[in-house]
């Protein structure tokens, strides 16, 4: 059992390492191949002497071949040195860590909202399937699923913050409760799509479970409605977990846009600013961090499968 888990973990680790390598190398190639040079972005339209250009090229090793440049970066990264931002001169790890907290808070709150909204609505729809309430919930969930978080964010901003003045318009607040208060609207914008997805998964799997023989048999034995529902819900754990994983990753990525809408100084706005500036070290850092976070989410979901369904772990134990 323990060795099976260890092997599983190591496999995952190797897989993630490959993904990170491919991604970081891909980004390097892109920058190398892309039109427009780094020194041009740095200098803008200011006049510059040939010496200044050469100094910049030397500082950022821009004359080295692609593979050498990449190797230097990789060697540094493996030693925990992600380089410095071309734009601000700040070390990349400092730039990222000062902004990661906000993104994580936003994603956590968004996921929480999505779970609290989506799962109960999905259960309600399944229990009333075919009736008006079910149809209404399903239509709303399709709309939610189709709504881009930045559009929802703008609509919420316009209505609840600008028109009604119930929520702060921009910024991340002054820490503590104020911070969370500022995050309510952006988190809601992020949660709408996730809630739609969770409604879909929860409703479909619960409808399927409620039709299963074991549910009929439990009712025939005189088990009450609540306990029968608990039976069925327990068996929906795997699809709901799958959806939760999808929601978490989509919210992590979606936060990029929502941060732009609400002018929140998180990883997303950092990434967008750096991308247009061709600030490779920062782009690399943010992309790698988000990829690692997504790998962690997937790992957690897989581990949760085994906890939720003994059949998963039983099969694994047999091998």
């Amino acid at each position: 059992m323990a060795t099976a888990w260890l092997r599983f973990l190591l496999g995952r680790l190797a897989g993630t390492a490959v993904v990170l390598l491919v991604l970081s190398f891909g980004i390097y190639c892109l920058v190398y191949l892309a039109p427009g040079s780094v020194e041009h972005t740095l200098l803008g339209n200011r006049p510059a002497t040939e010496e200044t250009r050469a100094a910049i090229r030397a500082q950022y090793h821009l004359d080295d071949p692609l593979l050498v440049q990449y190797w230097n970066w990789l060697a540094g990264a493996l030693h925990g040195d992600l380089g410095t931002s071309i734009r601000s001169g700040e070390p990349v790890d400092v730039a990222i860590s000062s902004r990661a907290t906000l993104t994580l808070q936003l994603s956590t709150l968004g996921t929480l909202f999505a779970l609290l909204l989506g799962i109960p609505a999905g259960i309600a729809a399944a229990l009333r399937r075919g009736r008006a309430a079910d149809q209404g919930i399903v239509v709303l969930s399709v709309a939610g699923l189709s709504a881009p978080p930045f559009a929802v964010g703008l609509l919420l901003l316009g209505l609840l913050a600008v028109k009604l003045g119930w929520f702060p318009v921009y910024g991340a607040g002054d820490g503590g409760l104020d911070r969370w208060w500022h995050l309510v609207l952006p988190a809601t914008a992020l949660a709408i799509g996730g809630a739609g997805l969770l409604v879909r998964f929860t409703r479909t799997s619960l409808v399927r479970e409620l039709d299963q023989d074991y549910v009929v048999f439990a009712r025939a034995r005189g088990l009450g409605g609540v306990r029968v529902l608990r039976y069925a819900l327990r068996n929906c754990a795997v699809p709901i977990l799958t959806a939760t994983g999808l929601v978490l990753t989509s919210i992590l990525v979606g936060s990029v846009l929502v941060e732009v809408v609400f002018a929140l100084p998180g990883l997303g706005s950092l990434l967008v600013d750096s991308v247009t500036f061709k600030d490779v070290p920062v782009v690399q850092g943010v992309a790698l961090l988000l990829t690692i976070l997504i790998a962690l989410v997937n790992l957690a979901v897989d581990a949760a499968y085994a906890a939720a369904d003994p059949r998963v772990s039983l099969v694994r134990r047999k091998r």
Partner: peptide, 8 residues
């Protein structure tokens, strides 16, 4: 095979 709750 389907009559019993598989997770209990």
């Amino acid at each position: 095979f389907t009559m019993l709750n598989p997770l209990r």
